[in-house]
Amino acid sequence: AAGIGLLVGMNCPKAVKPRDVITGISGRSQILFLVTYVARYLDLLTNFVSVYNTAMKVFFIAASAATVYLMLFKFKATYDHNHDTLRVEFLIAPCALLALVVNHDFTPLEILWTFSIYLESVAILPQLFMVSKTGEAETITSHYLFALGSYRALYILNWIYRYYFDNFFDLIAIVAGVVQTVLYCDFFYLYITKVLKGKKIVLPA
């Protein structure tokens, strides 16, 4: 929530330097995250868990839609699309196929939930590809990515807790969550060794 809030806040018109954020952020990853949240939280209409759960779902969808809107429409001119070129159909198609084959239940909502879990695990790839192409990441972009990666990494601790104390596990969520966290590892390393020491991420040529 902090990460996505940071992203929306810094991209807002009144922010000090919105350009710094927009140029470093992959619009393709942001669209994938929006698709992820919409596909997963369709159960807003059918399944009530808690006020917190509902509020966070609405927040994730709204903030993610706002980010996509700001990037692709309002601040279209500053969006660095030349470096944002990873083909997202190569991510979406395998996730859709896998969701049709490996799921808990062959129903529309369940398949969309499963698709969202698989898609989220790889949704950061256009962003990482963009950082590798430009060879650097603004510090504010780095904070955002770290918050986004921590969100799933912290769930791994939660899943271990639930396995032992709640007698519950969801293998699809666990495997996808571990894959997702592994994809962030290289970035986590750069974040800890550079950004936390006051330097911005610059990759060797």
Binding site: M56, F60, D105, N158, F168, D170, L171
Partner: peptide
């Protein structure tokens, strides 16, 4: 252990 479709996580 029960597993499956209790989607109460975000």
């Amino acid at each position: 252990h029960q597993h499956g479709t209790r989607h109460d996580e975000l």
